[in-house]
């Protein structure tokens, strides 16, 4: 998601999330809403990457491209963008520019 100046926004995971791997799934507890989110492997990978360092849509696409099946690699950009939007809407990641609550 490019900013007004054309640069890509970067995202970080909220620092106060609680998460647990149960089987192949990742359960994430949101500390404010107390909602629990069940993330699939791709979303979990993005969230974990965002917890290690700020991530942009291109950096996430690069991560996903190595993991996706051959026939899905062409859409890695779209998937990365979509996952960042979804996780951001859930309040699990925040843009670095709004990092105060993270």
């Amino acid at each position: 998601m490019p900013d007004a100046d054309g640069t890509e926004d970067h995202y970080v995971a909220r620092a106060d999330l609680r998460w647990r791997e149960l089987g192949d799934d990742l359960l994430v507890f949101h500390p404010v809403s107390w909602d629990v989110h069940l993330l699939n492997a791709a979303a979990g990978m993005v969230l974990e990457a965002c917890s290690r360092a700020p991530q942009s849509s291109p950096s996430m696409a690069q991560l996903l491209v190595d993991w996706l099946a051959d026939d899905l690699r062409a859409d890695a950009d779209g998937l990365a963008r979509s996952l960042l939007v979804d996780l951001s809407e859930l309040g699990l990641i925040v843009p670095v520019s709004q990092r105060a609550g993270a």
């Binding site: 609680r18 149960l22 089987g23 192949d24 799934d25 359960l27 507890f29 500390p31 107390w34 629990v36 069940l38």
Partner: peptide, 21 residues
């Protein structure tokens, strides 16, 4: 599956929503 078990246990809890984290 463990994640499915989580959902079913949470629904069957009297006070899961009170205890939060």
């Amino acid at each position: 599956e463990p994640a499915r078990t989580f959902g079913r246990l949470a629904v069957n809890s009297f006070n899961y929503d009170v205890l939060g984290p």
